[in-house]
């Protein structure tokens, strides 16, 4: 049997198998350890050139990728460009051709249009990592969320995970849904219907319109950031009312039958989708998500660069987690 690999690109979790997802998570384990060292650098990607191509502002994801790349000793170039929608369409084809001409090894791309990462991947030989395409997928975020959940439970299989908030416009939600379903979790979404995609039940997820029901049902809540412009676009009446109806508050959590693990991909709107006491409380793993983000991105860079899954095999032998 050939060992699993990721293939050329990482575009989304929808097209990955459970085996490939586990490969990334297992490969990330030893990279967590690199980040703990005094000298946080390994020579794995020495001589590789990586372009971080961000057509949309993002501090967290870009910095997380940069740390991951530097810790693997890669040479990186950052390109940021935010333009009008016509310009961005034209530059994408031209950018692809330019990158191809420069013989770049890998491209990490964030783009405001769904499908943009696939578009680029089909046009260049370099590996493409989707750092978020429109409202489609954000696979590295999905993987780091999975890793964080796995750190806190024996297995993801059978867990009940509810994603709360603006599912309609969220690439994080879509990547989480695919990843969790593939690893055997039960998945639900919760939010006002105006922020839920039509036919979402068709993906095999439950729908809650009341946050109290979601809290009662769940083992894990992944609370999405509410983009403030959703209010001006008329999807919800006000942030105040959103907090009142959908906010994850201490009072609501205390009424739950069991302790919940709380994730948030950040940046948080405290007092909108999440109560500060919850964000800073004992069940929040929001900072572990940030730490795991670097390890997961190191694992992906390593695997796409042709790294041996053996590293992951070795990690498995340390036997952190074998039940999944």
């Amino acid at each position: 049997m050939t060992p699993p690999s990721l293939g050329k690109d990482l575009l989304g979790l929808e097209k990955l198998t459970a085996e490939q997802i586990r490969l990334v998570l297992d490969t990330a384990e030893p990279f967590k350890e690199v980040s703990e060292r005094a000298i946080k650098k390994v020579p794995t990607l020495r001589g590789k050139t990586i372009v971080n191509l961000f057509f949309e502002a993002s501090t967290r994801t870009r910095i997380s990728f940069e740390f991951a790349q530097k810790r693997l000793s890669a040479d990186t170039v950052n390109i940021s460009s935010t333009g009008s929608s016509v310009q961005k369409g034209e530059t994408l084809v031209d950018t692809a051709r330019n990158l191809e001409a420069m013989r770049i090894d890998m491209v990490v791309m964030r783009h405001p249009s769904s499908g943009a990462a696939k578009f680029l991947a089909e046009r260049i030989r370099s590996n493409v990592i989707n750092a978020g395409d429109g409202q489609h997928e954000h696979p590295t975020q999905g993987l780091l969320d999975l890793l964080t959940i796995r750190d806190n439970f024996d297995a993801i299989d059978g867990l009940k995970v509810c994603i709360c908030g603006d599912i309609l416009h969220s690439r994080v939600a879509r990547s989480n849904i695919w990843g969790l379903l593939k690893l055997g979790a039960e998945v639900a979404v919760c939010g006002p219907q105006s922020l839920l995609p039509r036919g979402i039940e068709g993906l095999g997820v439950q729908v809650f319109h009341r946050i109290e029901q979601a809290i009662e049902w769940s083992d894990v809540l992944n609370i999405l950031r509410l983009q403030l412009e959703r209010m001006s676009a008329g999807y919800i009446p006000s942030l105040r009312e959103y907090y009142r109806v959908f906010g994850v508050t201490m009072e609501r959590l205390e009424a739950a039958p069991k302790d919940l693990l709380i994730l948030h991909p950040g940046p948080m709107n405290r007092g909108v989708e999440i109560d500060s006491r919850v964000a800073d409380g004992p069940h929040s793993v929001i900072l572990s998500q940030v730490t795991n983000g670097v390890a997961v991105r190191m694992a992906i860079l390593y695997l796409l660069a042709g790294g041996e899954p053996a590293l992951a095999e070795a990690a498995k032998r340390t036997n952190r987690e074998g039940a999944e």
């Binding site: 769904s114 499908g115 489609h136 997928e137 879509r174 995609p197 039509r198 036919g199 068709g202 993906l203």
Partner: peptide, 12 residues
Amino acid sequence: EGLVSSRLGLKG
């Protein structure tokens, strides 16, 4: 607007 647009993350 339907299941396909929901999956692809395109506005329906």
